[in-house]
Design a protein around this nucleic acid. Sequence first.
DNA 1: GTCTATACTACGATAGAC
DNA 2: GTCTATCGTAGTATAGAC
Lengths: 212, 212
Amino acid sequence: MLQDRLIDIAIREFGEKGLDGASTRGIAGAADTAMSSITYHYGGKEGLYLAAADHIAEQMSREMLSLLDLEDPVALADAAAARAKIHYILCLLIDRMLGEKSAAWSMFIIREQLLPGAAFDRIYDKAMGRLLGHLVDLVCVATGVSADAQIRVAVFLMTAQVFALRSARGVMLRLAGEDGTVESFTNSLKHEITLSTNATLDRLTTDRQETA
Amino acid sequence: MLQDRLIDIAIREFGEKGLDGASTRGIAGAADTAMSSITYHYGGKEGLYLAAADHIAEQMSREMLSLLDLEDPVALADAAAARAKIHYILCLLIDRMLGEKSAAWSMFIIREQLLPGAAFDRIYDKAMGRLLGHLVDLVCVATGVSADAQIRVAVFLMTAQVFALRSARGVMLRLAGEDGTVESFTNSLKHEITLSTNATLDRLTTDRQETA
DNA sequence: GTCTATACTACGATAGAC
DNA sequence: GTCTATCGTAGTATAGAC
């Protein structure tokens, strides 16, 4: 479909060059259509930009709801189940970060974080923020403490390690390439993230019980 | 100086919009000069782009050598000294990530990692790679094991947490803003990174001694 | 709903004045 | 070493054919 093609290419082009840098002619040309169809469907360049952001937010939100099963009541009651779910979510995110779609999305999302515009609000409110909030809830259940700044810092650092597979991809490829394959490196990475997440959860549990 | 102004603005503009998206007219205008002075000093748009990359690499390299004192022989012999140095480097990197210069550099560097060009090689070879290599050496001394893929994975994850202060800045600001200030969040972040780094180093030490 | 045609602005490169 | 002038190309927006 024309509009799907336009949005996909818009995400890539706006991600690479930003709202100013990207060109509607280039996007329309890559989608095999005339520039004026962007005007017709989205009202202009800016409309297409926001539509691209909304598309990312919707896709992320949809994937989260179906694949992560966010409303799972078991994981929100039992500490061991919550911990297992945290590992499950992080591993799933790692696979997403290594996939094709995150490559197209990441520049768009990172740019919106570093040069804040209207688009990141939509993506955060509809998708990222809900995922992070759910991870905070899970960490609370897993450690038996209530949400506060320390929990949020821990969640930020957990996800930071995962998102780095994209944002620091050049560094990763060079570190992985010194010997062995990228696959063996990422497998090792999954293992290390699991271990360090467990260590963090254990530490949070112990810290709070000692001070209680 | 004119060339300094041009390079500074070029890093920002190329970072935001990429080689194609940025305009030499815009850069020259912001530097209060004519577009043709870019041709004169750098031979054209691409020359300015590579000069901007080299500037980042040189500045990073200079800061590393003077502030991190990379060739410190004590830290490369004693386990406790190596561990202290790792914490020192990570804390220093955190401060850098919160500073102004990293804001201008980060989009440039992240773009080059996600859409590899000739520029990232220069930055990695001259600065980032050497820093990471040194961290690998320090982790080896601190844990008493020799460098391998697992060590490199661990170093990648340590630095990933630090670099996320820039690349995931939008997420950080929102998580920090739920209560308290950004300062209290980043202080908490430094503390958590120190603890989790210690946990990782302890685990690496124990793992290897058990299998030996 | 998609196209062509047009108007106007901005782009990079280059030549040449000073 | 920095400027203006100019060329050919490519940018967005818009009006209107079909």
